[in-house]
């Protein structure tokens, strides 16, 4: 199976943030692989380890420093990575990000797409389900269990709801967003870290994925930021 995992880099949630000119001053702050995306990477790597034949490809859209995050996922055991990198991708709203990812994913083989439940910086929890719709795939969010059918044509997943859970069967390919409880993400081993250095990170720009900056860039955003501030004091 070709498993794609969408990963994002975020500022470590433990870090104190400063806001200046409507922006979080991210310079020098520690950055990590989005914690929910760790569950997604871990699950993909476990599937591969279990069946001994699947390929795990990470995909991320973001600036150059996102490579560190891709390396981290590779060190956890992913096979390769695709970095969607182009100035035209800057300043997109979440639907725009989902469009870029969808365009990138269409150029890759995929039988299963895993995302995190949400990115812990912008916290929109939008990209997974939006991406699925753009790709015409079924989707289930906040899953805490994933069982693939033997023929890998479908999966049974458990998703958290208020006061309980649902057990859902979905055909594949599908987009699933991963929640805590799905697994315990591993810490990369030294061997994994060394191996990751040699793994491929392919860079794709707007032209390579058929993304038109004029019609799909930030000017096409449906929402704009008008304020970013510390919450009012209690």
């Amino acid at each position: 199976m070709n498993i794609l995992v969408c990963v994002k880099q975020v500022i470590d949630t433990g870090a104190a943030i400063e806001i200046k000119d409507g922006k979080v001053q991210s310079e020098g702050l520690p950055r990590v692989l989005n914690p929910y995306d760790e569950f997604a990477v871990e699950e993909a790597v476990r599937i591969k380890e279990t069946d001994g034949e699947s390929t795990v490809t990470l995909i991320s859209m973001g600036p150059d420093n996102f490579k560190d995050t891709l390396r981290r996922g590779l060190a956890m055991g992913a096979d390769k990575a695709v970095h969607l990198l182009d100035p035209a991708f800057e300043g997109l709203d979440s639907l725009g990000v989902a469009q870029v990812l969808a365009a990138g994913i269409r150029t890759l083989d995929h039988d299963l797409i895993l995302c995190g439940r949400q990115a812990v910086d912008d916290d929109m929890a939008q990209v997974g389900p939006s991406l699925a719709v753009l790709l015409g795939m079924p989707f289930v969010s906040v899953i805490t269990k994933l069982n693939l059918a033997d023929d890998k044509k479908s999966a049974e997943v458990t998703r958290q709801i208020e006061g309980g859970s649902e057990i859902i069967e979905t055909p594949l390919p599908a987009v699933l967003t991963c929640q805590k409880g799905l697994n315990e993400p591993r810490l990369p081993s030294l061997k994994g870290i060394m191996a990751a250095k040699k793994k491929e990170i392919a860079v794709l720009d707007a032209a390579a994925i058929g993304f038109d900056p004029a019609t799909q860039g930030a000017t096409a955003n449906h929402i704009t930021q008008v304020d970013l501030a510390k919450p009012p004091a209690r």
Binding site: S94, L95, Q126, V127, S130, I223
Partner: peptide, 21 residues
């Protein structure tokens, strides 16, 4: 809710409109 959080982004993508969650 967990359901609303799943439906809203899907609907936004389907309609091509803005969403704030």
């Amino acid at each position: 809710t967990n359901h609303g959080k799943e439906l809203a982004p899907a609907l936004a993508a389907r309609l091509g409109v803005g969403l704030a969650t």
